[in-house]
Computed example of a mutant assay.
Amino acid sequence: MNSKVGGKVTSEEVLLKRQQHLQRQRDVITYRMKKLAAKQEEITKKTNAVKEKIRKKYEDMKRVLDEDLRITLTQLDTEHEATEKLVEERIEDCYQLTQELNQELDNLRALVKKDTQDIDIQNAETEKRVSETLKLTDPDLIQMDEFKNEQLLSITINLLLFIRSQVPVTKKLFQSYAADVVLDADTAHPKLIISPEGDSATYTDTWQDVPETPSRFDNTLNVISKQGFSEGRQYWEVEVSGKTYWELGLTYPGIPRQGREEDCWLGRGKESWCVEYFNGNYAAWHSGVQHELPLLAGKQFTRIGVYCSFPGGLVCFLGADTMTPLHCFCAGTFADTLYQALCPGHDNEGTNWKSLKICDASRSAPVL
Rank of each mutant, 00 (worst) to 15 (best):
M1D: 12
V5G: 03
S11F: 07
E13R: 09
V14M: 14
H21Y: 07
D27M: 11
V28I: 09
T30G: 10
M33L: 15
L36G: 06
A38H: 06
K39Y: 04
E41R: 13
E41D: 13
N48E: 14
K53H: 09
K56Y: 05
Y58H: 13
E59R: 12
D60Y: 00
K62R: 10
R63I: 12
V64W: 01
L65K: 09
E67N: 09
L69G: 12
R70F: 07
R70N: 11
T72V: 04
T72C: 08
L73D: 13
T74R: 10
E81Y: 08
A82D: 03
L86W: 01
R90K: 15
Y95C: 14
T98Q: 14
Q99P: 00
Q99L: 13
L101R: 11
L101Q: 10
L101V: 03
L101P: 00
N102H: 11
Q103L: 12
D106K: 15
D106P: 00
N107Q: 12
R109D: 13
Q117R: 15
D118W: 03
I121A: 15
A124S: 14
E125D: 10
T133M: 12
L136T: 11
D138S: 07
P139R: 14
L141Q: 11
I142E: 10
Q143H: 06
M144Q: 10
E150S: 09
I155A: 15
I157T: 12
L159H: 08
L159P: 00
Q166G: 06
Q166S: 08
K171V: 01
K172F: 05
L173N: 09
S176F: 02
Y177L: 12
L183N: 02
T187M: 04
P190T: 08
K191T: 09
K191H: 14
S195V: 02
P196S: 13
T204L: 09
D205L: 13
W207H: 13
Q208L: 10
V210N: 03
P211S: 12
E212W: 13
E212Q: 15
T213Q: 06
S215F: 04
R216H: 05
F217T: 02
T220L: 06
L221D: 02
L221R: 07
V223C: 06
K226E: 08
G228E: 04
G228V: 00
W236E: 04
E239K: 10
V240C: 02
K243A: 03
Y245P: 02
W246R: 01
E247C: 10
L248G: 02
P256D: 07
R257A: 02
E262N: 14
E262F: 10
C264R: 06
G267T: 02
R268M: 05
R268F: 00
G269P: 01
G269K: 04
K270F: 02
E271C: 03
W273M: 04
Y277D: 04
F278D: 07
N279M: 07
A284L: 09
S287T: 04
E292C: 07
P294A: 04
K299N: 11
Y307V: 05
F310K: 08
G312K: 14
L318K: 05
G319L: 05
M323A: 06
T324G: 06
T324I: 02
T324K: 05
C330E: 00
C330L: 02
A331L: 07
C343D: 09
T351W: 04
S355A: 14
C359H: 01
A361F: 01
S362H: 06
A365Q: 09
P366V: 01
L368M: 11
